[in-house]
């Protein structure tokens, strides 16, 4: 059975990169003594896949991984066993059985919610909120993206599905996953360019809120959180 695990990454753990988070969960599964399935061969590894790598420096309330397990315990028990062996900075939020034949987490990702703040001392001049609204009114926001085949122009405006400015916080819903992944930093960089201000590295505090899959038919978008697909495992 495939199990989808949702977790949150906060505090100091934002300095731990994606590969290390993968290693961390492999060890955590063994500490919690969960019945994870292994691949065959001389160096068997856990059958486990993550939805979307989170960059170093970012925090998140909506990270996902899928794990194959033989007779997993009830969701509540699995949660308490996992959280008992976590380091401060990662908390497991849900543990749900996936239906047969559901796509893996990584292939499913279609969109993400982010909250973006300017790190104190790094923001544009006062009143930027109003100017950001004007900026987002545009129908196209072309940026130069460094790709494998050299720099290319890309319109990122259509990749922003929704946005809102609440005080000092910019809330964004953007395209994510293999079909087109927009990092919020790229949008904010474009805004800073339009303001004519330098946006030094680490000027942004980026927090991922949720990852979504798209269940819409041709042409229409219908986003549901990745965890919505799974079902709570009850006591046997």
């Amino acid at each position: 059975m495939n199990v989808r695990i949702k977790f949150r990454k906060y505090g100091c753990l934002k300095f731990i990169g994606h590969l290390d988070v993968m290693r961390y969960f492999q060890k955590a599964m063994r500490r919690a003594e969960l019945p994870v399935c292994y691949s065959e061969g001389y160096s068997p590894h856990m059958i486990m896949s993550f939805a979307s790598p989170l960059g170093v420096g970012l925090t998140s309330d909506g990270e996902y991984l899928d794990v194959r397990m033989e007779n997993p315990p009830a969701s509540q028990e699995a949660l308490s066993r996992l959280n008992a062996v976590m380091a401060e900075g990662i908390e497991v939020l849900s543990f749900k059985a996936l239906p047969e034949k559901s796509g893996n987490a990584m292939a499913s990702v279609a969109a993400a919610d982010y909250e973006v703040r300017f790190r104190p001392g790094y923001g544009p001049k006062d009143g930027w909120q109003e100017r950001f609204r004007t900026f987002m009114e545009k129908t196209s926001i072309p940026v130069i993206k460094e790709g494998k085949k050299g720099p290319r122009e890309l319109d990122i405006r259509p990749m922003v599905y929704g946005w809102q400015v609440l005080g000092e916080v910019i809330c964004l819903q953007v395209s994510a996953g293999s079909a087109g992944n927009l990092k919020p930093e790229l949008l904010l960089q474009a805004f800073a360019d339009s303001e004519g201000v330098e946006l030094p590295p680490h000027a942004l505090l980026v927090h991922r809120k949720e990852l979504y899959m798209d269940q819409g038919e041709e042409g229409t978008r219908s986003l549901i959180p990745l965890e919505a697909l799974g079902e709570e495992i009850g006591r046997a």
Partner: peptide
Amino acid sequence: PARYIGGEV
């Protein structure tokens, strides 16, 4: 940076 943050299991 993980070299300097402590907080390991």
